[in-house]
């Protein structure tokens, strides 16, 4: 699954930083018919977790009310240099992940 993330490369300790993720995914509601009138099975990214140096800083449990190609923006407190890891899974069991490093100065 193709995704884009935005994590600042640098931050000062104690700074509140903005984290963004956008994932290419139809977020199928389960209510939509295909061109032959058959119902397309529900398939949404139901869970996304963002960890900062192994600690969970954000979790999204999502349903069919989330838009296609979901965008999520949230925040984290910069504490130490390290890595942000985003991981997610959809109803079909397909998984995706992205990671980015951050350097935190005193």
């Amino acid at each position: 699954m193709l995704a884009r993330i935005e994590v600042p490369r640098q931050a000062r300790r104690g700074e509140i930083i903005l984290l963004r993720i956008a994932i290419q995914h139809p977020m199928e509601t389960g209510y939509r018919p295909d061109n032959f009138g058959r119902r397309i099975a529900k398939n949404v990214i139901n869970n996304l977790v963002c960890r900062y140096n192994g600690v969970e800083v954000f979790r999204a449990e999502m349903g069919s009310g989330m838009s296609a190609n979901p965008l999520l923006q949230f925040h984290a407190l910069a504490e130490a240099s390290g890595e942000f890891v985003f991981e997610w899974v959809d109803d079909s069991g397909e998984r995706g992940s992205e990671r980015a490093a951050i350097t935190v100065s005193a």
Binding site: L2, A3, R4, E6, R20, A22, I23, Q24, A68, N69, L71
Partner: peptide
Amino acid sequence: DFANPGMLWVARGEK
């Protein structure tokens, strides 16, 4: 450019 979902297709195109 981040909120624009079309950029996901551009990113796939680059790959």
